[in-house]
C-alpha cells in the first residue's frame, strides 16, 4: 500500500514538474514554432494531469480542444504571420501586409 502511494507521488510529482517545465519552455522560447509545439505538448501533459485528478471529461476536452484544435489554430496563425518561404505555396496576395510588430 505504501509502495503504491509512493509510486503515485512519484508519478504526480513527475507530471507536475514536467508541466511547469513545458510551460516555462513554451513561454521562454524565442522561436515561435518551437513554442507552439511545446504548447501542444503542454496540453497533452495537462490532459494526463486532469485524468489523474479523475476529471476525465476535462481531460478529453483538454486533449481535443486545448492541445489539438488550439495547436492547429496557433500553427495556422503562425503560417499567416510569416511570409511563406519555400513549401511551394503562392499565397502572398496583393494587399496583404505582413507585420511583425
Amino acid at each position: 500500500m505504501a509502495g503504491l502511494s509512493l509510486l503515485d507521488w512519484a508519478l504526480d510529482g513527475l507530471l507536475a514538474l514536467l508541466l511547469l517545465w513545458l510551460a516555462w519552455r513554451a513561454l521562454a522560447s524565442p522561436e515561435l514554432f518551437r513554442a507552439v509545439v511545446l504548447f501542444i505538448a503542454f496540453g497533452l501533459v495537462l490532459a494526463l494531469v486532469w485524468a489523474r485528478l479523475y476529471a476525465v471529461d476535462v481531460a478529453l476536452a483538454e486533449m481535443a480542444i486545448g492541445a489539438g484544435v488550439t495547436g492547429a489554430l496557433l500553427l495556422a496563425a503562425l503560417v499567416r504571420l510569416e511570409p511563406p518561404i519555400g513549401r511551394g505555396r503562392q499565397d502572398a496576395r496583393d494587399g496583404e501586409v505582413y507585420d511583425h510588430d
Binding site: 481531460a59 478529453l60 476536452a61 481535443a64 480542444i65 489539438g68 484544435v69
Partner: peptide, 25 residues
Amino acid sequence: YLLWVGAHAPGGAFQAGSLLGGVGI
C-alpha cells in the same frame, strides 16, 4: 461514440465536436 456515451460516461458534444473539427482540419 463520444456523443452517445456522454449520457452515462465521460464524453459529450464538445469532445465529439472538436473531434469532428479535427477531421475538418
